[in-house]
């Protein structure tokens, strides 16, 4: 299923329910997230992975995205 279908369905539902029903989505979101991460862990656990390599990749990607954002913002954003 395309990811946009549940996303757009959710946006439409949220828009229609706005000002009509007071719903807190924090708890359902947390439960869905924890289950999703658990199942993601299962999928990853079944694949042979090098933990050190994953950690290194994560740090490189995090650092580069932060530095890239700062570079562009310092270059292009003026008050």
């Amino acid at each position: 299923m395309n990811i946009f279908i549940p996303l757009l369905a959710g946006i439409l539902t949220g828009y229609l329910l706005k000002n009509k029903v007071k719903i807190s989505i924090d708890k359902p979101m947390a439960v869905a997230l924890l289950l999703l991460i658990f199942f993601m862990g299962i999928e990853a656990g079944r694949v042979e992975i090098n933990a050190f390599k994953l950690l290194l990749y994560s740090i490189v990607f995090a650092s580069f995205t932060i530095l890239g954002s700062l570079f562009v913002a310092l270059l292009g954003v003026r008050r």
Binding site: M1, I3, P6, L7, L8, A9, G10, I11, L12, T13, G14, Y15, L16, L17, K18, I23, I25, P28, M29, A32, L33, L35, L36, F39, M40, I42, E43
Partner: peptide
């Protein structure tokens, strides 16, 4: 896994929509 993914995306959509 896929069901949870779609459920989470739907909930995120509701949050954006409201």
């Amino acid at each position: 896994y896929e069901l949870m993914l779609y459920l989470l995306i739907f909930i995120i959509g509701v949050d954006i929509g409201k």
